[in-house]
């Protein structure tokens, strides 16, 4: 069954303009009124993998809290007051390694339609000082721009606020959807990049590396600040050569001097998520390598440091160390 064949709508969400906007894009979808998004999203024993093949939309109103402190496993890029927010839960891509499979029991996509309340929460937080905010962690807002224009809403909002800096992270090649906007100093467009082979094998539905690089080039040419996110680095056959050639390819297209910064992150996730996902995924080798659980309950490769150090050395050939995080 096609994606978004059904749209579940919280009764109180229906009146929001965002809900109307989303619904107008899917006139043929079956609409089901619900009391609370968790009645659908949090049902017991849902099958994430099967749902991924026929994802549904859920339109809901997010109650407080709207902002969460940035997690330890995520890079703060030296920023004070690092927070993330989730105006959308789940993603249209289907990456083998994605932690969302272990975070949520459902593959359905929840769009919180009360975006203005998210903005108000940001304003309240800004009263106590500058804020570094990531609204595209538990989703890919740029990829969803054709369904709900939240990437552009966040960009426009950030452009009007002093002390706010936001990172919009994406794997999407959908830059065209926001190309009409003027670059905003407070906004960093961040692209997650993986070698072509990894993208093809482990990042189903996401655009190929070449398309992402093209989008990055367009953004740079328009004057946006661009961050490159090299994560998760995965163990693949012949990984040294794969990652060396990958960086050669990236920087044969992207002028290194124009990149704001970059971060490196070897594949890692919380112990609980790892346990849950590795049970679900008998179709990928991502979870099959020898792993170790560090203090704080984070699982990663036993030889994570070797992979990270190698990649750092290669990346450092293109970018100075001040621009490399992680």
């Amino acid at each position: 069954m096609s994606k978004f064949s059904h749209i579940y709508i919280e009764e109180r969400a229906a009146i929001y303009p965002v809900a109307q906007q989303v619904l107008s894009r899917f006139p043929g979808s079956t609409r089901v009124m619900i009391r609370h998004y968790k009645d659908v999203f949090n049902r017991p024993r849902q099958d994430f993998r099967r749902q991924k093949a026929s994802t549904k939309l859920i339109l809901a109103v997010k109650p407080e809290p709207f902002l969460y402190p940035g997690p330890e496993v995520c890079e703060d890029f030296g920023s004070q007051n690092f927070y993330y927010t989730s105006p959308v839960l789940n993603c249209i891509y289907d990456c083998d390694y994605c932690y969302l499979q272990g975070l949520y029991t459902s593959a359905n996509i929840v769009i919180f339609v009360n975006i203005e309340e998210f903005f108000k929460a940001v304003d309240r937080q800004l009263e106590s000082g500058p804020l570094y905010l990531c609204p595209s962690y538990d989703t890919d807002l740029l990829a969803l721009e054709g369904i709900v224009p939240y990437a552009s809403r966040w960009i426009e909002f950030a452009g009007t606020r002093q002390g706010l800096r936001i990172e919009l992270r994406s794997k999407s090649a959908n830059y065209g959807a926001i190309a009409h906007l003027k670059p905003v100093e407070q906004v960093i467009l961040a692209w997650s990049l993986s070698p072509s082979e990894v993208a093809r094998r482990c990042e189903r539905l996401a655009p190929p590396l070449k398309a992402r690089l093209k989008a990055i080039m367009s953004a740079l040419q328009d004057g946006w600040q661009v961050r490159l996110c090299f994560e998760p680095l995965l163990k693949v056959y012949n990984w040294e050569q794969v990652y060396r050639e990958f960086l050669d390819e990236v920087f044969s297209v992207i002028p290194a001097g124009r990149v704001l910064d970059a971060n490196i992150g070897v594949f890692r996730m919380s112990k609980e998520q790892f346990k849950r996902i590795s049970k679900l995924r008998s179709d990928t080798d991502v979870f099959a390598f020898p792993m170790v659980c560090h203090e704080g309950g984070v699982v990663t490769y036993e030889d994570e440091k070797e992979l990270r150090d190698f990649f750092y050395r290669q990346l450092n050939k293109y970018l100075p160390k001040e621009k490399i995080y992680g």
Binding site: M1, S5, H6, Y8, T30, V32, I34, R35, D39, V40, R43, Q46, D47, R50, Q51, A53, S54
Partner: peptide, 15 residues
């Protein structure tokens, strides 16, 4: 209380 089956397949019925 409300309950929701997951309809993940094409089918010939009205819903």
């Amino acid at each position: 209380k409300q309950y929701f089956p997951d309809i993940l397949i094409e089918h010939p019925f009205k819903e």
